[in-house]
Amino acid sequence: MRGARYDAVADFYDAGFSDPRDPVLTTVLDHLGPARGRRVLDLACGHGRVTRELARQGATAVGVDLSGALLDKARAQEQAEPLGVAYVHADAADATELKDESFDAVVCNFGLADIDDLDGAAATVRRVLRPGGLFVFSILHPCFAGTALVAGTWPADQSYYDEGFWVADNQSAALRRQVGANHRTLSTYVNTLSRHDLLLTATSEPSPPAAWRTDDRRDAARLPVFLVARCVRLDRR
């Protein structure tokens, strides 16, 4: 299995991204609906923050990630506070370890930009979801180029239409300066989902934190920063 960019920053990521219920995740969970009694996959689960929240809400939760270092942290948390979460070390774009049509829902919180093969990831989601199952994901809004203080999904000195992998140089983008990100247009996301029978049924654009409107990030607060979407898996067999 190929290495993961997050292996080198596992300690940094675990220390800085542990809030179990930030506003965007709250929106993701709202789109998912009641988790209790459902089998839910957390795609690109990292250190298990979202996976564990799903388990706390009553889901049978499974997390999958390419980073063995982050999964070690997730499993350590599970050992310290057992919630019945299972973790799978696999590439989201080729997770053959996951059985076909074995999940009621899949969530991916800010993970799609870290997955190089979006088409492969969408194929995995379609394959592991039961017909009628939901795929709910959050991303930085593809239209958000960022500002001097807040990094966006593409370099501010380039074009929205220039897709590809890039590494931020914005000093406030502590994570993206280390692991980079894949920028894709909104149409690329929607068309890729459609090719894999994932019908977009709802979207939300959560507001940035209220504090941004009164500090140096007020320019970013006027723009679409986050996007949350819900899809349903069609049955075209």
Rank of each mutant, 00 (worst) to 15 (best):
A92M: 03
L134G: 12
A105S: 06
A168L: 00
V128E: 03
A92C: 12
R130P: 13
A95K: 04
L98Q: 05
L129E: 00
D114S: 15
L134A: 13
Y160V: 03
R126C: 12
D157A: 15
E97Q: 13
Q158K: 08
S159H: 11
V125S: 04
V167E: 14
W166N: 04
L129H: 07
F110P: 07
V136K: 09
A93Y: 06
N109E: 10
Y160H: 05
I139N: 13
Y161P: 06
A92N: 04
F103P: 04
L149S: 05
C108S: 12
C143T: 13
S102C: 04
L129T: 06
T153G: 15
A95F: 03
Y160K: 03
D162F: 08
R130W: 13
L149E: 15
D157W: 12
D94G: 06
I115W: 11
S102Q: 01
T124K: 06
F135K: 01
V106K: 06
A92R: 01
N109W: 09
V88C: 00
A156R: 14
D91F: 05
A95C: 03
G120V: 08
N109K: 10
A121T: 08
F144Q: 09
E101V: 08
F137P: 06
E101Q: 14
F165Q: 01
A113L: 13
H141I: 04
H141Q: 08
A105D: 09
R126F: 04
K99C: 02
T124D: 14
V107A: 11
I139H: 08
L140I: 13
C108R: 12
G132D: 15
A145K: 06
D116S: 14
G152T: 02
A93S: 15
I139C: 13
D117K: 04
H89G: 03
Y161S: 10
V125P: 01
W166R: 01
A90F: 06
Y161F: 15
D119H: 12
V88R: 00
S138R: 04
T153H: 11
L149G: 15
A105P: 06
V167K: 14
A90S: 11
A105G: 02
D162Q: 10
A123E: 09
L118P: 00
F165M: 01
G120H: 05
D91Y: 06
F110H: 05
F135M: 01
G152P: 11
V107F: 11
V150Q: 07
F110D: 03
R127V: 10
L112D: 08
K99T: 10
S102W: 01
S138D: 06
P155L: 10
G152K: 03
F144M: 07
G164C: 09
D100W: 09
W154K: 13
G133F: 11
L112V: 05
L134M: 10
A95N: 02
A123Y: 04
A92H: 02
D117S: 05
W166C: 06
V125L: 01
A151L: 01
V136S: 07
F103M: 12
S138M: 02
D162M: 08
V107C: 07
T124N: 14
L129D: 00
G164R: 02
A148K: 14
V128T: 04
A121S: 12
W166T: 07
A148T: 11
G132I: 10
A168R: 00
E101L: 00
A95Q: 00
R127T: 02
